[in-house]
Write a protein that binds this DNA or RNA. Structure first.
Lengths: 184, 184
DNA sequence: CCAATGTGATTAGGCAGCTAACTATTACCT
DNA sequence: AGGTAATAGTTAGCTGCCTAATCACATTGG
């Protein structure tokens, strides 16, 4: 995720060691006070931890893709293709995956080299191309599915069904808040 | 041709675009059934939406950095440097930021070119270098701080203080779940 | 005291995302 | 018709991240 993805947190409040963990409330507070701002450190912490957590889960998923020689982007493209009956134009893929057409070109290049998709000129549009999932591509997806979804499930296994519902609601509200900032 | 409903695969946590929203429960269910898996679609949805939300918030923060000519990585490095008194070795930066030393070298190159940091040989270790925050770098951070933290706060403004606490707890538990998968 | 090993920083090469620019084709508009 | 605009796909060049390899210096053990 993406990568790329944003690593752990937007601000570097990593204080000492043990590398790894997400920033603490103290660190957020220190940062805010350092600039003399009237911002709620807890709110900052929520945003930063959300970014961190999303990246972490994304990386955990990516680790599985890597075992099959795929990246997140390539997996997404393959899966979207299958979901659509195995055929789709690059432009449409870009739209549905939310990436640029140029990125799709690059992903298709790699997937074609690996024999997971094929390109064929469109029959309806002289400009167009169609990406086709090969039998090998479909098989790969089948091979990955069980463990992939199982891993996703395992990651949230610490939450009850009710908690998951609450979590989804809170997530949606933060997304709305960020969308308000983004949309200009 | 009719606008066919685009089905989005589970890992297709698309950004906004066209329809914009993250995947739905229906889509998750369809995917899981397609492979005949016994996985809870809601759990899958939680993981996928978390990835999506984290990326969204990260992008919203990044948009602000871009106004000052910084990327997320460069901002984090700068902020970490200031947080540490303005001086730190590249190795330490890599450790604290959670990226490789090679990445730090690249980030420092860009920041040095922009006059935001300077490199100086370490006085204690003949092999070592120290990255130093310049006055200009510190000023840039000061200029960015208010709006940066304000934006983070705004994104979570839809949650009450209690909800934020719940959210942090749920986030932490999902992170623990993903860490269990990652660590092996 | 010197060889082996370890560590700091960089370089080289790869991937995935982006924008901008380009070619080819199709569609639109008088 | 014919010129202009929009669209499909690609290419080129940027960034940020990675790993692996390299070079320089440090430390340590026999």
């Amino acid at each position: 995720m993406t990568a790329k993805v944003i690593s752990r947190h937007i601000m570097c409040m990593t204080r000492d060691d043990t590398d790894g963990e997400a920033p603490t409330l103290d660190q957020a507070r220190r940062q805010v006070e350092h600039y003399g701002l009237e911002v709620d450190p807890q709110a900052v912490l929520v945003a930063v931890r959300l970014i961190s957590a999303g990246a972490r889960v994304g990386r955990a998923a990516e680790a599985h893709f890597a075992k099959f020689g795929l990246s997140t982007g390539r997996y997404r493209l393959l899966a979207d293709l299958e979901d659509h009956g195995g055929e789709k134009s690059p432009s449409r893929l870009a739209l549905d995956l939310g990436v640029s057409r140029a990125t799709v070109t690059g992903l298709l290049d790699g997937l074609e080299r690996a024999g997971l998709i094929a390109r064929r000129p469109s029959t309806e549009d002289g400009r167009g191309t169609v990406a086709i999932l090969t039998a090998r591509g479909a098989q790969l997806l089948r091979d990955m599915a069980s463990e992939h979804f199982g891993r996703l499930e395992a990651m949230v296994s610490g939450l009850s069904v009710e908690e998951r519902a609450v979590f989804l609601d809170l997530l949606a509200r933060v997304v709305r808040g960020s969308a308000a900032l983004t949309a200009d």
